[in-house]
Write a protein that binds this DNA or RNA. Sequence first.
DNA 1: CCGTATCCTTGGAGATACTG
DNA 2: CAGTATCTCCAAGGATACGG
Lengths: 137, 137
Amino acid sequence: MAGDSRAQRPPERTGPCARWPADKGDTIRQIVERAGDKWAVLVIGALENGPVRYKDLQHSVPGISQRMLTHTLRQLRRDGLVTRTAYPEVPPRVEYALTALGTTLLDAVTALIDWAGTHHDEITRNRARFDSEAAGR
Amino acid sequence: MAGDSRAQRPPERTGPCARWPADKGDTIRQIVERAGDKWAVLVIGALENGPVRYKDLQHSVPGISQRMLTHTLRQLRRDGLVTRTAYPEVPPRVEYALTALGTTLLDAVTALIDWAGTHHDEITRNRARFDSEAAGR
DNA sequence: CCGTATCCTTGGAGATACTG
DNA sequence: CAGTATCTCCAAGGATACGG
């Protein structure tokens, strides 16, 4: 009916894809993407062995800018993955640490990194082959 | 006069952070980021139960654009995670399927999704608390 | 039906300077 | 020392139209 020439942008949500819980889908995606976020993963990794100060984090995660460090820490705090503790001293000292929840995420991410490490060579070979076939052929 | 007014992006690599293998670091990161890539994960999930045609993938992954579907499939093929099979018929038919390697990645990603599902409520609560504290206070 | 090529918008992310 | 505010740039991603 009503021949809508141009399907008017159905506000279709990400949709019931395959297997995941559709209701929580949005949040789940955000969380998974956090695990794929370069800076978030690096920061979490840097906190592995206990509390670290802001400044030290900048050194532990070399390429990161202040902006991104602050931003990432805020996200992680918001999700309850890290805690922030400010000591009322001079000079000011602030320490960040993983929560229990954060530690479990680190474990999950570590599993993924292990997978990547295990198949690293195979994937590199696959890419080389694919590229040469695409180019040369 | 070589006036590089603006420090020209030192090609500083991501650097020896924390714990991962520094040599393979770059590739590892790319692979992990693939697991955090929304579309890649959704496409892989859609391929879980055997080969799927291009057109059907568009429906299985609702929000995706042709551009991104094609692009994602190309990446996944390049890494050797999916295969492409074109049947010389009319109308043309092309099927994509997970490789053995792709299946193992799906497992790893599924673990992460499970983690997200398990802690979904807790994280949602954390966020709500954080936001209300930040705003109200 | 299966893609590729093109245009265009948006926000992610770096550099810099300033405040508590 | 620990952050915030502001500017800018670029590339990821959506819409669209066309080619095989």
